[in-house]
Every structure is written in C-alpha cells, then in structure tokens.
Design a protein around this nucleic acid. Structure first.
Length: 261
DNA sequence: AGGACGCCCTGTTCGC
DNA sequence: TGCGAACAGGGCGTCC
C-alpha cells in the first residue's frame, strides 16, 4: 500500500517505537531484498548502534544510525512495519528483524518481496543515486510549476514518475486528478498554468488528508474517489459509473463525466 | 530520448 | 464450489 502517506505513517510508527534503543541482533530472513549489501554487512552496521531519527523521501523511509549511516527501507507493493514486544511472535513475511536490548523487535514485512533494504551514506546520496525528484510534500509551488511546465507524457504517468516528484503512486495519482477534474490520460503539455497550480494544491491537500486518515483509503471523506475506486464504483460527485483504463502499465480509475478527456 | 512492456514475487480476487 | 487466470497501491531493465 505504500505510497507517500503510507510511508509517512510507517515513519511515525518507527519514531514512536524504535528510536534510541541499542540494537542487539539483526536477522535477515529475506536476503534477496538487500540492495548492494549483505546480511553480514547489515549486521555489522546495525549491531550495537541505535536509530537516532528518521526521514522520508517519497516512498523511501530512511533511518539514521548514530554511526552516521542510514538504513533505507522501501516497501514495494505490500510491505509494512510491526513492532513486537518481548514474548510476542515475529509476524509472518518478516524479511528483516531488528532486535533491541529490551527484547522488543522491529519487523519489516514484505509478503511479495518487491521491496528493498539498503544502507546509504546519507539520504542525499540515496536520493541522488536513485534520481529521485523532490518529495511531493516538500516541493514548493514554484518548483512544481517549473518541473511540470517542462514535463511530458500523460498527467498520471508524470505524477507517478519518481524522478519528477517522489511519493505519488497509482492510487493517489487517481485521487489527485479526480479532484482536479482532469482526465488521467491528459497530456501534461496541454495543461495550462492554472491547471498545474490546481494539481499542486490538490496534491498537498490530498496527501495531508491521507496521512491524517492513517493512509486508509476507506477512511477518506465520501467525496474522495478512493473509497469508491474499483469495479461497480460510482462517482461521489455525479453518481455516474467510474471507468478504468491502463496508463503506463497501471490501472487508472476515473469519472468519465467529471474528468473529460 | 522517452514511452511501452515484461518481469520480479506471492496472496487475493475474478470468472468460467 | 472449485479451479486456474488475472490482478495488486512499485520500480527496473530492455526494447523499439
């Protein structure tokens, strides 16, 4: 589920559970998720250290160790975090388990194994090496207008391109374009400045609202698209049937009446 | 150069 | 009801 709002919720969860505790042991049941590191190297980097603070860039969670390095977590299409008190069983699909001195544990779960675990020298080093654009919640309106003004491709694809702006995925791109009344297949180059200003403002509002709702689409207001997204879904604005189409290899849902092409 | 596509993996849902 | 097929909120490499 992990788009920006989900990862922000995970980040806050990480902060409330896993900071400032001595790491006693690291287990890597899913070594195939490691990027440019090994279970041994990860163990060496984490053992005896503690997490000092976290940041999020787009869909990546970066946890600073007191050694200066960062643990990087990406959740693919299905990952999450679970903090387990001493005595509780480690949950299913755990790919990385970090044991703390008080016997509690942080489990990174990723059933579909499409996520990544890495070590980075710094957030900036990671962002650079992955060519990530600015975070969708920290980009200024001015910068957004500049980037989108020279972008190409279809509006949905552009919003989902992590090299342009980082954090928007398939679900929230649908929501943003729905609230902007812009068809997901619109060519970005054909959107004028006021369209793009609208996208910026709606993007901020939607992402903040989603975080407030714990990144649970069903908890979003009735007037949002996401609670209705899917087969047999109806537009909360006009009541018409929602339609789907494939854009950039992903399923876009939209209202043909409210988002004319 | 940029966009479309296949693929990675596995749990869940769909449709015959 | 039961089965295989298709699909799922991501990202990368390859191909045109």
């Amino acid at each position: 589920m992990p788009e920006l709002p989900d990862v922000e919720v995970y980040r806050r969860y990480f902060d409330s559970t896993a900071l400032h505790q001595a790491i006693q042991h690291v287990r890597v049941p899913g070594p195939e998720l490691l990027v440019d590191t090994t279970p041994q190297a990860l163990g060496r980097a984490l053992h005896g250290a503690a997490f000092r603070k976290t940041e999020r860039h787009g869909k990546y969670l970066l946890a600073h160790l007191d050694s200066g390095k960062c643990l990087v977590l990406h959740f693919g299409m299905s990952g999450d975090l679970a903090y387990c008190q001493a005595g509780n069983r480690t949950p299913q699909y755990t790919q990385l388990e970090i044991d703390f001195a008080n016997n509690s544990r942080l489990a990174y779960r990723c059933p579909r194994k499409l996520g990544h675990i890495a070590l980075a020298d710094s957030p900036n080093a990671w962002i650079r090496s992955h060519e990530l654009g600015p975070d969708a919640l920290r980009i200024s309106e001015r910068e957004f207008l500049r980037l989108s003004g020279s972008g190409h491709g279809r509006a949905k694809s552009w919003l989902m391109d992590q090299r342009q702006i980082a954090g928007i995925g398939n679900y929230y791109s649908d929501e943003i374009l729905f609230q902007c009344l812009i068809h997901p297949a619109s060519e970005l180059a054909e959107l004028n400045k006021s369209n793009r200003e609208r996208i910026f403002n709606v993007m901020q509002r939607v992402l903040h609202k989603a975080i407030d709702c714990n990144a649970d689409p069903e908890a979003l207001p009735e007037s949002y698209l996401l609670p209705h997204r899917g087969k047999d879904g109806h537009c909360p604005r006009c009541g018409g049937n929602l339609e789907q189409m494939t854009i950039g290899g992903r399923t876009a849902w939209y209202c043909p009446g409210c988002q004319p092409g």
